[in-house]
């Protein structure tokens, strides 16, 4: 499992990418999906996920809809128009960052 420091910087990107691929998701679903995809390597904490979701919503990047599950309310998040652009931007930025890190840390796999 990766350290929370590493995840903190990439959380927005992860959330935006998840939402870009799945139309609407709720918090628990996001954590489970990330877990599945990464084979438990990335486990989003509730303490980091929800503050991020709320701030992305406030920025207008996410839109929400609610659904009643018995007595409790489930909040589904999806990308707004702006969010779709932002999601692409973030992924591009991170891929750029990764290439730079690969170069910086001299991690380039040796090509024959």
């Amino acid at each position: 499992m990766f350290s929370s420091e590493l995840i903190k910087g990439t959380l927005k990107t992860i959330v935006l990418k998840m939402l870009a691929e799945n139309k609407k998701m709720y918090g628990y679903e996001i954590t489970q999906r990330v877990r599945e995809l990464t084979g438990d390597k990335i486990q989003l904490t509730e303490g980091a996920l929800y503050p991020t979701l709320h701030s992305l919503e406030a920025e207008g990047i996410l839109t929400t809809e609610t659904e009643f599950i018995g007595k409790r309310v489930r909040k589904y998040y999806s990308l707004s128009k702006e969010g779709k652009i932002k999601s692409k931007e973030k992924v591009r930025e991170f891929s750029d960052f990764m290439n730079t890190m690969i170069f910086l840390l001299d991690l380039k796999p040796k090509t024959a």
Binding site: Y28, E46, H54, T66, R72, R74, K75
Partner: peptide, 14 residues
Amino acid sequence: EDLQNNLLDHVCCM
């Protein structure tokens, strides 16, 4: 309230 609901749903799912 918003956060209460989110956490509630999350704990319940878990």
